[in-house]
Write a protein that binds this DNA or RNA. Structure first.
Length: 820
RNA sequence: GGGCGGUUAGCUCAGCGGUAGAGCACUACGUUGACAUCGUAGUGGCCACUGGUUCGAUCCCAGUACCGCCCACCA
């Protein structure tokens, strides 16, 4: 039965993928015939996720490298898995619960909610895996990993030890002094009510206002406000009894504890040390000198709100200003029962703002304050102002700098080795331009806030208890920390610390301290209770351990010994900081080895206008639809051909259609060979891997072309020039084999050269299938199966290594004369 | 404010110290026995601009313009 005229991708792909899996073709070490290993760690997609174009691109490149190495006989592992994605997943599940009219997260409580999340993961967690299979990804799915596997509340079927690895690393880094807890200003997401890291904040330019407020000097004092030009000539003079400050967030004035001016600013320096009276509440706040105040900006005088602004926090600590928090975790105003806030305020003013604003949203408070300032004439003016406002990257709401206790990784202490490894070339980042970005970020690294006020994640393995009498925290107020991998070990630490066995575990640390003979001791009869920190770790803390965690660390598994350090990490530049830099730091800190020797950073897949594809913009191309329409091979080949380093790629359907046609072209060249009994199965004595002994110029020429393309493809892939590999193969297959060789071969199918031509054609096509296989595995697999008895071998096809010795210069010359 | 990238055919993009390349689109012709998801032939470019290096620059260097991105911040 003759071949169909086209490759039926829709029918064949699922069948072929199932056959690959059934044969174990993707298992670690499959087809290994040499000692070298090759290992790629998949960037774990969110377990809530579904395949988008970026995944398709990223995984196509990984699959090409993986298949190429596997075919060459490397002991190969492409390690798959998913990330639990704390905020994203919690968000999705909460939304689902709301849709179904369930209890809210808080109503159902932590344990029940986590059960729901696991349930949800069980239902939809395989979505992305199945989608990756449709792409043709040759991962070893039997090793599929999950960043929450083995967590205490994980259900049946979620065994694994990733959780153990995460907890062990936390404990290790804690004991080494690389992790600490501190009260600091953090980026607070009022929607999710959690701290987030600097990286999870995105600056969004918004139309806003700059309001100028007048703060009266204490005691009705006046001064002459004088402006001068560059030459020192007076340009303006006015007697004032106030200072004007400017702000884009008037509601924060309730937390002001100072006004800063530059120490050299002639307009104000004589006022340093005096006080102004905060409108509304009458708080008396000092005028302080600090370089932060820039005489050229605004009015030169800056209101200082240490509890709600990062810069102001710095000024406050330099100048000894207290921090007054006036907001709730939902960014409403917190004024009632707020002792810090009430301190130093006049009682009438206090009562008034509490009445008007307590509990109200920050933006309502802003409006009220502006309106009141207008009515009471301490609003100096309003300017329209377009400025950047920090937003949560998930919640899309404006974040608030917020004063809380959080856990931090002291990144400065572990960043050195990660910098050195790239500086000395043990790890290369391609394209090189990204190394600069990597260096710049790491050289200026800030402490990493790793605690999140979420439920879905690895709970922080620290239990709090009261301080012992002879070990009081000099700062006071804090709790003794017991950091241990398990509750039992934490209790043991506590027992040792308190010197008694009767330590209980509760929901809040307790145990009374009493003053006895000048020393604090645990109260008579009171037994100390310790309680675990309810917070969880930043998702990236666990995914930062992906390379060792997926290979079984801390156990010395054979896979860990064999495949670590891994070889190449393929990822988009958008997570260099989130993930790559942290994997470098963490692997080096934990096992003192680089996680991979090469980082290939690819560009983003964008829409036709060059915008990042995103659901909210509605400009996404769905790779699965494209696979349905054009076949996985066409999608893969398109992405590969556009994968030039360092430049974003914009997808068009026309282009994909073009590469779908390419698969048809290859298919039909094979069909021609079939009609002429010029396939491997037809050619007696021809083993696909052996070059036929050809005499005719055309045959000698095409054999040389095959050798050339094999060398070019290897060279391209070895240097990660995926587009070169694809375009070389395209030009070879279509431009050389189909346009010229098949045409020249037609008349040779009868006559003296018939046998050698058939053998040559069979060999050429066979080689084309092999060389194309990493990029378009489905159609080549199908063709391979059709053309010979090698179907079962195909997945393990041996990659050829012939070279220049197959090139026949004389044949080249003759053919070039004909082809031109 | 700091940094990075881009500007090449109508469109999307490769490339490169020495007659400018691909795909798509377009034009004309073609039911040749692999393929109309095709074939043959063709149209189409001062390679952003200005200087410099060079025997020679689209390519290297400097600057300009516009576009895009990243980081930091604007009280």
């Amino acid at each position: 039965m003759p071949m169909d005229k086209t490759f039926n991708a829709a029918e064949a792909e699922a069948r072929i993928y199932a056959a690959w899996e059934k044969s174990g073709a993707f298992k670690a070490g499959a087809n290994a015939s040499r000692p070298e290993t090759f290992c790629i760690m998949i960037p774990p997609p969110n377990v809530t996720g579904s395949l988008h174009m970026g995944h398709a691109f990223n995984n196509t490149l990984q699959d090409i490298l993986t298949r190429w190495h596997r075919m060459r006989g490397f002991d190969t592992l492409w390690q798959p898995g998913q990330d639990h994605a704390g905020i994203a997943t919690q968000m999705v599940v909460e939304r689902e619960l709301a849709k179904e009219g369930n209890l809210s997260r808080r109503e159902m409580g932590r344990e029940k909610f986590l059960d729901k999340v696991w349930e949800w993961k069980g239902q939809s967690g395989n979505t992305i895996i199945n989608q990756l299979k449709r792409l043709g990804a040759s991962c070893d799915w039997s090793r599929n990993a999950f960043t929450m596997s083995g967590a205490p509340n994980a259900p049946e079927g979620e065994e694994g030890n990733f959780h153990d690895a995460v907890i062990k690393v936390f404990v290790d880094l804690y004991n080494k002094g690389f992790i600490y807890r501190g009260k600091r200003l953090v980026n607070w997401d009022p929607h999710f009510e959690t701290a987030i890291s600097d990286l999870e904040v995105e600056q969004v330019e918004v139309d806003g206002h700059m309001w100028r407020l007048r703060y009266r000097l204490e005691g009705g004092e006046t001064f002459d406000y004088v402006e001068t030009d560059a030459d020192g000539n007076e340009t303006f003079r006015e007697t004032r009894d106030y200072l004007t400050v400017a702000t884009t967030r008037p509601e924060t004035m309730l937390g002001d504890t100072g006004v800063a001016v530059h120490p050299e600013d002639a307009r104000y320096r004589h006022l340093i040390g005096k006080h102004v009276i905060l409108p509304l509440i009458g708080r008396r706040i000092p005028i302080v000198a600090d370089d932060y105040a820039d005489p050229t900006k605004g009015t030169g005088a800056v209101k200082i709100t240490p509890a709600h602004d990062f810069n102001d926090w710095g000024v406050g600590s330099r100048c000894g200003l207290r921090a007054v928090n006036v907001m709730t975790t939902r960014a409403g105003m917190w004024l009632k029962d707020n002792a810090d806030f009430a301190e130093g305020c006049d009682s009438d003013g206090l009562a008034r703002v509490i009445e008007a604003l307590d509990g109200s949203d920050r933006y309502e408070a802003r409006d009220w304050i502006v309106q009141t300032a207008t009515e009471e004439e301490w609003l100096d003016g309003i300017d329209k102002d377009r400025h950047m406002v920090p937003h949560g990257d998930r919640s899309k709401v404006a974040i608030e700098p917020y004063l809380t206790d959080q856990w931090f990784v002291d990144t400065a202490k572990i960043v050195g080795p990660a910098l050195d490894a790239v500086r000395d070339g043990r790890t290369k980042i391609l394209p090189e331009q990204h190394e600069k970005v990597y260096f710049h970020w790491l050289e200026n690294i800030e402490p990493w806030c790793i605690s999140r006020q979420l439920w879905w994640g690895h709970q922080i393995p620290v239990w709090f208890g009261p301080y012992r009498a002879d070990d009081m925290d000099p700062a006071g107020g804090s709790f003794k920390q017991f950091c241990a991998p398990t509750e039992a070990e934490a209790v043991a630490l506590a027992q040792a610390y308190y010197g008694i066995d009767a330590v209980t575990v509760g929901t809040g640390p307790s145990g009374k301290m009493e003053l006895v003979e000048g020393r604090y001791v645990l109260g008579h009869g009171a037994t100390p209770t310790i309680a675990r920190d309810p917070d969880v770790l930043d998702t990236w803390f666990s995914s930062g351990l992906w390379p060792i965690g997926t290979l079984g660390w801390p156990e010395e598994t054979p896979e860990l010994q064999k495949y670590f350090p891994t070889d190449v990490l393929i990822t988009g530049f958008d997570i260099i900081f989130f993930w790559v830099a942290r994997m470098m730091m963490m692997q080096l800190a934990v096992v003192d080895q680089i996680p991979f020797h090469t980082v290939y950073v690819h560009a983003l897949v964008r829409d036709e206008k060059g915008k990042k594809m995103s659901k909210s913009l509605g400009n996404v191309l769905d790779p699965l639809e494209l696979i349905d329409d054009y076949g996985a091979d066409a999608v893969r080949f398109t992405l590969t051909s556009m994968a030039a380093m360092g430049r974003d790629l914009k997808l068009s359907k026309d282009r994909i259609a073009g590469y779908r046609n390419f698969t048809t072209k290859l298919w039909n060249a094979t069909r021609f060979a079939e009609m002429n009994a010029a396939l491997c199965r037809d050619v007696v004595g021809t083993e696909a891997a052996r070059k036929p002994d050809a005499k005719h110029t055309v045959n000698r020429w095409i054999i040389g072309e095959v050798a050339r393309v094999r060398m070019a493809v290897d060279e391209a892939l070895a240097s990660y020039r995926f587009n070169d590999a694809a375009n070389t193969l395209y030009a070879f297959t279509w431009g050389k084999v189909c346009d010229w060789y098949v045409e020249f071969a037609k008349p040779l199918m009868d006559g003296d050269h018939a046998a050698e031509t058939r053998a040559t054609m069979a060999w050429v096509l066979d080689q084309a299938f092999i060389l194309l296989h990493p990029i378009m595995p489905f159609v080549t697999e199908e063709l391979w199966g059709l053309t010979g008895d090698r179907a079962k071998l195909l997945v393990h096809a041996d990659w050829p290594d012939y070279g220049a010795d197959l090139i026949d210069e004389n044949a080249d010359r003759e053919m070039n004369w004909v082809i031109g």
